[in-house]
């Protein structure tokens, strides 16, 4: 009896440590989603003022952006690659958030009619949040960037050198993350902005991540380990957006013709080797 149940739970544990295999135990199910939804219906009132401020801020920023695109034609031509990339955004509300463990997840309440799938990116108005892990009709669980399983492709804003965004559980600091594997010749300066790279199909290029707090050469002396202060306050998230990449299928087909089962894994690894070679 003991052994049987112990082995089952160990199995579930091991399952949760490998990057998104089919997970059985997640908070995206109807039951836990409903309970968290009740909870957030009550607790949301306490942060209404803060949420209003955040939304007003975002509106202001978007209006400024809109204004500048209307005013200058040059801006449009410069950014045409970004603008024509067909991404669809869906709204969602955070109903449960964790940031104190080594593997943190969020639970979202989404609109039932939105076709959200595993592996879509999640951002807030200030920056990157995580990747969709499991979806049910009204709820979705998100693997936060504060999760030792997460590894997200990110780059310096002012150059094309890129690395992987990971989280260091040793400090358990929800405001900091690490960017590893930045090549040595990259112009790393404290205070510079880090954005997502768009080499994976999850996030578009240019989603804000954070600013460089400090950096040092890693043990093998070839790469920088960069500590980043995140733009997002991961401890206080309310409204987020889920990003769908409409060209995902096409990109996948070109990258790995044939074997469909490898696709998911490949994608999570941010396609390291071939592009890394091409870049240098």
């Amino acid at each position: 009896m003991f052994l049987f149940l112990f082995v089952i739970s160990l199995g579930l544990t091991v399952n949760s440590h490998s990057y998104h295999k089919n997970k059985y135990v997640t908070s995206a199910n109807f039951f836990s989603g409903t309970i968290y939804n009740w909870k957030s219906n009550v607790t949301d009132y306490f942060s209404l003022r803060e949420q209003n401020d955040a939304l007003a801020d975002e509106n202001m920023r978007l209006r400024t952006l809109l204004r500048s695109t209307q005013d200058t034609i040059i801006f449009e031509t410069l950014d045409s690659t970004v603008l024509t990339t067909p991404y669809t955004y869906y709204p969602a509300k955070v109903i449960n958030n964790s940031y104190a463990k080594t593997k943190n997840y969020l639970t979202l309440r989404k609109r039932a009619e939105d076709a959200i799938e595993t592996d879509m990116g999640v951002i807030s108005s200030k920056g990157i949040v995580g990747i969709i892990n499991k979806v049910s009709r009204k709820y979705a669980s998100v693997q936060s960037i504060l999760n030792t399983n997460s590894k997200i492709n990110a780059k310096l804003k002012n150059s094309f050198h890129f690395g992987s965004l990971v989280w260091d559980p040793e400090t358990k600091n929800p405001n900091e993350a690490k960017l590893v594997d930045i090549p040595r010749q990259a112009p790393v300066v404290v205070g510079d902005t880090i954005v997502t790279d768009g080499k994976s199909t999850i996030f578009p290029r240019g989603i804000l991540v954070g600013t460089i707090k400090e950096f040092e050469l890693s043990n093998n002396q070839d790469y920088y380990d960069v500590t980043i202060t995140l733009f997002n306050d991961m401890t206080s998230l309310h409204h987020v957006y889920i990003i769908e990449n409409n060209e995902k299928e096409a990109i996948k087909q070109i990258e790995n013709p044939g074997d469909a089962s490898v696709l998911e894994i490949q994608q999570s690894n941010n396609q390291e080797t071939p592009q890394a070679n091409a870049e240098q």
Partner: peptide, 9 residues
């Protein structure tokens, strides 16, 4: 576990 997304810990 179900509520805290922690596998079978």
């Amino acid at each position: 576990d179900i509520f805290s997304d922690s596998g079978g810990v």
